[in-house]
Write a protein that binds this DNA or RNA. Structure first.
Lengths: 141, 141
DNA sequence: GTTGACTCGGTACCGAGGTACAGGGTGTAT
DNA sequence: ATACACCCTGTACCTCGGTACCGAGTCAAC
């Protein structure tokens, strides 16, 4: 298989495959007399492995680790599990951050909607002053 | 105030302030005889506004919009609210994606823990085959 | 034997949000 | 008058995950 075939099969573009090769995610394939890359059957599945791991949130360097772990034997399972658990924790953290943002934004939008009479837009005001508006009316008791 | 004073007051570094100026987030301040930037009192608050908006998830170009809206009058409130609501929706979407990743990862880690006897690490296997392991035992009924 | 699709390596670029450095000028305290 | 901290512009660099372009070589079909 040539690079274009692998790319088509894996749903990637050619540059990306070469990039992965440079990054060490894809082994350098054999070369034909012309210098064209000549991939075996395992190339496309390997690329799909990479895509799936990306979908789970792994970075390319983490994926490089996963690929190494895959090729070592079962002794690597705790390591793999640790990698996944760490990633999970990072995702949780990110979710927490985003949730905090969401809450703050929701409060602002809410305050803006309910106080059509206020002289200043509560959203802008909050950004100016650095505090979130209190949901109900009395903010200075 | 000179740039270093503003930077200190806002907790930013000098390069960043100059970068914001280039990006149009900070107006070009007056210059003293020496060519030094000479900031007014509003500079540091403006920088803090930017930081707060960033904390809420706004990008620098969205913040540029917010700053414009701030300076226009109250007619801009619906626009501001729309901006915030859009951002909120984007955050929600991001949270959904991350949650999906989290669920998938949790399943993998769980499967890996409960099947210490399986020949292959279920995490690696899932990445190889492109499916999430079923939580309980029977996956092929 | 020529056209057209493919491939090669190398390099540059994208966007986002900065950071760093070089080579100069300035402000001020002592 | 001389340190020393500060400022100036301009440019290059960083991470991340690619994408784009270049000029040149190659392969396959007709």
């Amino acid at each position: 298989m040539r690079i274009g075939d692998v790319a088509r099969e894996a749903g990637m573009n050619i540059q990306t495959l070469r990039y992965y090769e440079r990054r060490g995610l894809l082994a350098e394939p054999a070369r034909g007399r012309s210098g064209y890359r000549d991939y075996g059957e395992s190339a496309a599945p390997q690329v799909r492995f990479i895509k799936r791991a990306q979908d789970l949130g792994f970075s390319l360097s983490e994926i490089a680790e996963l690929l190494e772990l895959r090729d070592r034997t079962s002794r690597s399972r705790p390591t793999t599990r640790r990698l996944a658990a760490t990633k999970m924790a990072a995702i949780d953290e990110k979710i927490r951050e985003l949730t905090a943002m969401r809450v703050a934004l929701a409060q602002l939008v809410d305050a803006c909607e309910r106080s059509a009479d206020a002289p200043e837009c509560p959203i802008i005001e909050a950004l100016d002053l650095g505090r979130t508006p209190v949901a109900a009316g009395r903010s200075d008791v």
